[in-house]
C-alpha cells in the first residue's frame, strides 16, 4: 500500500541546509493502523506531509497504492490527494458558515461527482459517524468532537487508500477524544488503512503498530506495547 525507500527531505534556507528526514524506509500494508510518534522537531510532520502528498521528498521514492508520487507536479499531487488520501487535521479545517453536508461534499466536488450523488454519499458517511441529525449544521453550531466527526466523514467520502490523521484529538476534550478514537478503531476493523501522527502515547496505544521518529530517523518500528509505555516516559 505504502512504500517509502530511502526518503530524505532537506530544507534549504539561504546557505543553511536543514535535514528533516534522512533515509527513511518502511512499508505500510492494507488494513494497518499505524501511529507515527515523535517529539516536536523530530521530523514527524515532514513525514506526514510526504505521506499525504502535500510535499515531495528531496531524495528517495514514495509509492502510494501502486503509484510513484515522488516527482509529480502540483495538479497531479492534488489529484492523488483527492483520490487516495483522506485527511483528518488537528484543527478540523472545516469551511466556516458551510453545512456539514457541504463540507463533506467538498472533495467530491473536486472529483467531479454529480451533485445528487455527492449528497447521498455525504449523508451516508455523516450517518456513519453519528451525525445524521446534524446534516445542515454549520461548524460554529457543532462541538469540537462533532466537528472532527464531520472531518472524518469528509476523509471517508472518496473511499481513499489511506486515512491520514494529524493529531486528530489534539483540540478535543478527552471524553470526545475517546469517541473519535473508537471511530478510528471501527474504521480499521472495517478494513481501512489508518496512519495517525501524534505525540500522546495513550492515543498512540490505539494503533497496532507504532513508528517512532527522532532527528529525522526511525528509532523504533514495532508493536511492543511495553516499549510504548517506556517511550512514553521519555516523551510525555
Amino acid at each position: 500500500m505504502i512504500q517509502l525507500s530511502d526518503v530524505s527531505k532537506i530544507y534549504k534556507n539561504d546557505s543553511i541546509e536543514t535535514i528533516a528526514l534522512s533515509n527513511i524506509t518502511f512499508e505500510i500494508n492494507r488494513g494497518e493502523f499505524v501511529a507515527i510518534m515523535g517529539p516536536s522537531g523530530s521530523g514527524k510532520s515532514t513525514l506526514m506531509h510526504i505521506l499525504g502528498a502535500l510535499d515531495l521528498p528531496s531524495a528517495g521514492t514514495y509509492i502510494l497504492d501502486g503509484e510513484n508520487v515522488s516527482h509529480l507536479g502540483d495538479d497531479e499531487l492534488a489529484d492523488i490527494r483527492n483520490r487516495k488520501i483522506g485527511f483528518v487535521f488537528q484543527a478540523f479545517n472545516l469551511l466556516p458558515r458551510t453545512s456539514a453536508l457541504k463540507n463533506v461534499s467538498l472533495p467530491m466536488v473536486y472529483a467531479g461527482i454529480p451533485k445528487t450523488e455527492r449528497f447521498v454519499r455525504a449523508q451516508k458517511y455523516l450517518t456513519m459517524v453519528g451525525l445524521e441529525n446534524r446534516l445542515l449544521h454549520t461548524p460554529s453550531q457543532l462541538s469540537g468532537g462533532q466537528q472532527q466527526r464531520v472531518a472524518i466523514a469528509r476523509a471517508l467520502c472518496m473511499n481513499p487508500a489511506i486515512i491520514l490523521a494529524d493529531e486528530p484529538t489534539g483540540n478535543i476534550a478527552s471524553v470526545q477524544a475517546d469517541e473519535i478514537m473508537s471511530i478510528f478503531q471501527n474504521l480499521n476493523q472495517q478494513g481501512h488503512t489508518i496512519i495517525m501522527i501524534t505525540h500522546e502515547p495513550d492515543i498512540a496505544e490505539h494503533a497496532k503498530r507504532i513508528i517512532n521518529v527522532r532527528d529525522g530517523k526511525i528509532t523504533n518500528d514495532g508493536v511492543d506495547h511495553k516499549q510504548k509505555k517506556l517511550i512514553s516516559k521519555f516523551f510525555p
Binding site: D74, D75, A78, R83, F87, L95, L106, R154
Partner: peptide
C-alpha cells in the same frame, strides 16, 4: 489562506 490550503489539500487544482 487556510481555506485555500484546505481546498488544495482536498484536491482542488490550480485553475479551480
Amino acid at each position: 489562506t487556510r481555506e485555500i490550503g484546505l481546498r488544495k489539500a482536498l484536491g482542488a487544482k490550480k485553475k479551480i
